[in-house]
Design a protein around this nucleic acid. Sequence first.
DNA 1: CGCACCCTCCCCCAAACAGGGGAGGGCTTT
DNA 2: AAAGCCCTCCCCTGTTTGGGGGAGGGTGCG
Lengths: 210, 210
Amino acid sequence: MNSLNLAIVEDDPEVRWLLSDYLHRQPGLNVVMVCESAEHFLAELPDALPPHVVLLDLGLPGLSGLEALPLIKQRLPKADVIVQTVFEDPDRIYLALSRGASGYLLKSTPLAQMQQAISDVARGGSSLSPSVARRVLSHFKPGTSHHPAGLSSREQQVFEGLIDGLADKEIAQRLGLGLETVHTHVKNVYHKLRVSGRIELLSRAARGQL
Amino acid sequence: MNSLNLAIVEDDPEVRWLLSDYLHRQPGLNVVMVCESAEHFLAELPDALPPHVVLLDLGLPGLSGLEALPLIKQRLPKADVIVQTVFEDPDRIYLALSRGASGYLLKSTPLAQMQQAISDVARGGSSLSPSVARRVLSHFKPGTSHHPAGLSSREQQVFEGLIDGLADKEIAQRLGLGLETVHTHVKNVYHKLRVSGRIELLSRAARGQL
DNA sequence: CGCACCCTCCCCCAAACAGGGGAGGGCTTT
DNA sequence: AAAGCCCTCCCCTGTTTGGGGGAGGGTGCG
């Protein structure tokens, strides 16, 4: 059980060689598949030892890594997929993570850290390159994510109160305003964000659509 | 410019000594403050070289690290704070990250990785211990978050309707129930999740506390 | 069998919310 | 000076929520 089955999916022959060569020599690591495309990987899956960890390049020709991810997770629900790429844009990161990637490493990652990441995910952890982690964390900072455009500064404050689940009355107290004033701002916020009310607003916020 | 000013806030004398001793010897690292409490740290800030990175223990007596974090970020907006703790619970992680932590390391982290983390954040990255990263990533998977325990199956369905921002009437239609029935389920969901109503429920969901 | 739990539906009522209107004062831009 | 936006407050109404009660039928367990 100490042997960890690893699959590598990477189109660049040189990188593929480097990776498989290095990782193959690591004790406890068993490189069971080395594929040049997601299609090959999926096709060869039934014939190979099921991998515990898949190292997946995002920039693949044909079926991209992003498209392949859900398919892989579907076939191997228990496997951990580490995504490896040069791309650092928030969209790709978000998509990869929401599709079940257990790690997101940039191609600049040294081989030793790559190996570390593999054993981290195998132990039930996750691994992110520092700059990727920074982007992920910025999602959690209220100041960064909750910034709908087009709202006046007062409306921003009222909006934050709404997100915090406060009643109009409480927002009024927090901001030192009259209830009716808050009511007006709230109505304007609804119009500008084109929601029908608090509940739709919060529901969208809960699902990251704001 | 190559010298990185570091502050350490840690109540355990032994850990404090270990950290400061090790980090002090690293080239390019300049340990400018070593404090046993957040209060000391804040008090001594004006007299010291402003740190670029703060290593902050969460389990401090008096002002906890979680409480101190916003204060530190307020005084040193450009500094990166790495939180260090034994705690691995989602609430604490979420709070620390939303209050601006640039890293979240468990106390089990080896000193060498600690140093790596410090230079990572100094370069504009972030660093998370693998198990923490896993929890953070699970936030991005839609399927994982919406599964509150203790709800009956009907209540689960009603709960999903609530998250989707539906009114009782709409939930009733979706599930083919009477309005009053939905009303009852909704009330039970509130009680079980201990929220005062839809708005608190959605507000918590929006902030990942559910 | 009794008990607990769930699902279903009903009544009542106070509070909050949504949406519509208006109105005065300030501020910048044209 | 006029127009436009923002902030402040007030009026009205109907609908929705939230919280309390009860009640009948189902299922499962000891």
